[in-house]
Design a protein around this nucleic acid. Structure first.
Length: 316
RNA sequence: UGGACGUAG
């Protein structure tokens, strides 16, 4: 069973769902009874491969086989229901978990926080956070990130900052996810100054960043029209040996130039990508086409569409 | 050996 579970986990990394199904069938043929680890691996596997029905099917099978879900399986299933918008069923499982006498750990609480947050139940979300503290379950980085995500999206900037402060004073270091969430929050609040201040703090504290953090900051610059700053941060990304620009970076930079009305530079970006052996994708061309279209430079629009077809990028 | 969080039209 151990070998099968490891095999499934390995397949999950490669997102080979069809093979995994075969392995699961072979397990049954060999008379090996799947355990909680097998089922939770299959459930998270299915969700990662965007097959929620498969996740539900395996949970059903699990119950039929008489295997009782443990805390991990419950959390995985609550997440499945949340991701498929079946909030009532998710809440139901939370209760059932409690009835089964399974204590909630930090992951279970974080999942519940997300569940309330997705529905816009901010007070209930904060209640879960309080209950968690009352039960002496220590919130981790993801717990804070989940709350920051919800509150930032809702434009509740003050609350986000309070939580970020709580997080730091409880001795946790912000992860790259935290930092990108904070930049997203500032973008929503249209507060470029605080965002730039945060960037300086990141450098000062030596917090770890990744490409997504840079991309989120660049996106903020686009949204708030901070063109020179955007170019500066892009430069810093290129000089940062630990991060590499990805497709999102190119897209955001194309947007930056289009917003600045510097369309030629946006086009240059596309050729630069081609030189580097990368293919500009549909969103990049969309920005450029929109930019030129707005200026009524239809000749260039046609050129861009031709360029897409020459680059074998199918028009969607 | 299994579960939760971030950037796009």
């Amino acid at each position: 069973i151990y070998v099968y579970n490891v095999l499934l986990k390995t397949l999950r990394r490669a997102e080979q769902w069809e093979i995994a199904r075969g392995v699961a069938e072979k397990m049954a043929e060999d008379g090996i009874i799947p355990d909680n680890i097998t089922y939770s691996t299959l459930i998270s596997f299915a969700i990662r491969c965007r097959q929620p029905e498969e996740a539900l099917k395996w949970f059903q099978r699990m119950r039929e086989s008489g295997c009782t879900p443990d805390a991990v399986t419950y959390s995985a299933m609550i997440d499945v229901y949340a991701k498929t918008g079946r909030m009532d069923e998710a809440a139901d499982l939370c209760l059932r978990m409690q009835k089964d006498g399974l204590p909630r750990d930090a992951v279970a609480y974080s999942t519940m926080i997300k569940l309330h947050g997705m529905q816009g139940n901010f007070e209930e979300m904060m209640d879960v956070y309080e209950e968690m503290q009352f039960k002496k379950v220590v919130p981790n980085v993801v717990t804070f990130n989940s709350m920051i995500s919800v509150l930032g999206n809702a434009g509740k900037t003050q609350q986000v900052m309070r939580l970020f402060h709580d997080m730091l004073s409880s001795g946790l270091k912000p992860s790259p996810v935290t930092l990108s969430l904070l930049f997203r929050t500032y973008a929503k609040a249209r507060n470029a100054e605080e965002a730039f201040e945060l960037y300086r703090t990141i450098k000062k504290e030596g917090w770890t960043v990744d490409t997504v953090v840079y991309n989120t900051l660049l996106s903020l610059c686009v949204q708030l029209g901070k063109i020179e700053e955007g170019e500066l941060f892009h430069q810093e990304l290129l000089e940062d040996k630990k991060c590499r620009p990805d497709d999102w970076t190119w897209r955001t930079m194309a947007d930056l130039y289009v917003r600045a009305g510097r369309l030629e530079e946006g086009r240059q970006l596309a050729s630069e990508m081609l030189q580097r052996g990368r293919t500009p994708d549909i969103p990049i061309y969309m920005s450029l086409i929109q930019g030129y279209g707005r200026k009524k430079e239809m000749k260039t629009v046609v050129e861009l569409v031709d360029e897409m077809q020459a680059g074998k990028i199918p028009l969607d």
